[in-house]
Computed example of a mutant assay.
Amino acid sequence: MTLSPAQQIALWADALRHMAASGLRFAPTLYDQERYHALQTLAMEMQAYAGGQAPEALEPLRAGVFSHVTPFCTADAAIIDAEGRLLLIRRADNGLWALPGGALEVGETPAQGAAREALEESGVASEPVALAGVWDSRLCGSMTRHHMYHFVVLCRPLPTQPKAPASHAHEVLGVGWFREAELPTDLDPGHVTRIPHAFKVWRGEASAHLDL
C-alpha cells in the first residue's frame, strides 16, 4: 500500500507520540520529563501539519490521545442476516459507507464492543458469533492519524430488536442492508478489504484474518 506524504508524516508523528508518552510515564527526572514533553509537542505539531490544522487545535488532545502509550483498538460489527445482507452505516464525518464500530471501552471484550457500537450507531441489536479478523490500520487503508488495531467481529441480528432509536444516531447519515454483490461504491477505504473477508468467514470459506 502506497501512503501519501501526509499519511506517512502522520505515522511518524504517531511513533513519536508513543515514545513521548512512554517516556513521560517512566522518566525518572524532571529533566527527562521536560524533554519528553517537548517530543510530545513535536508529535502534535507534525500531526497538525499532516492534517492541515493549527497546532493549538490539537492541544485539547494532549492529555488523552497524545498521552496514550500503546496503539489504539477499535471493533467493528459485521452483522449479516439470514438472507446474506450486511448492515452498513453512512458515516457523518466523511459521508462514506462502513461497518458500524468504534473505540473499545475499558472492561469490555472486542465482541462486546462491536455489538455495543453497532447498537449505538444503527439501533440494531446483534449477537457476536465469530472473529472475522484483526487488521493493522497501516496495512488496510484506514484514514487515521494514529496506529490502530481493528477487530472485526461477525455478528447476527437478534430476533427481537429495540424500539428506541439509536443513541448515537448523530454519528450516522444513513443505515442500510446490502448483499455482497450490491455493496455501495463509496465505501470507507479502511473497510474495502475487511468487508469481503467478513463475507468469506460468514460462508465458511476463510478463517479469521491476521496481519503479520
Rank of each mutant, 00 (worst) to 15 (best):
W135K: 12
L158C: 07
C155I: 02
V129K: 09
I80V: 12
K200R: 15
L86N: 08
P100T: 07
G190D: 02
T109R: 10
G23L: 05
A77F: 07
G84T: 12
A92R: 11
A118P: 11
A54S: 14
P157H: 05
A125N: 11
W12K: 05
L154D: 00
A206Y: 08
W177M: 10
A63W: 02
F72D: 05
L88C: 00
E180T: 02
G52N: 03
P196I: 06
I9E: 09
E182G: 01
V65K: 02
L158G: 00
L99I: 03
A111G: 10
W12E: 07
K163I: 09
M19R: 14
G204D: 02
A115I: 09
P162A: 01
F151N: 13
V201W: 11
M143N: 13
D76M: 13
D32Q: 15
G95L: 02
Q53I: 06
A130Y: 10
H170T: 12
E59C: 04
S167W: 00
G64R: 08
V124M: 13
G107W: 09
H18L: 05
G101H: 05
T29I: 01
Q53T: 03
P189I: 01
T2L: 13
C73M: 12
T144V: 15
L88H: 01
I195L: 05
T41D: 14
L104A: 06
A166F: 06
G101K: 06
P128R: 13
E171K: 13
M44H: 05
V134M: 14
G133I: 10
H147R: 10
A169E: 04
A6K: 05
L158S: 00
A92K: 09
H168E: 10
E120Y: 12
A82T: 09
I9L: 15
L88T: 06
G123N: 07
Q53N: 05
G204P: 02
M1G: 13
E127F: 04
A38N: 10
Y49H: 14
L119Q: 13
R116C: 06
A111L: 10
A98M: 11
Y31K: 14
E108T: 09
S167C: 06
E108V: 13
P55A: 04
Q7C: 01
M1Y: 02
P5N: 01
A10I: 00
F72K: 07
A48S: 00
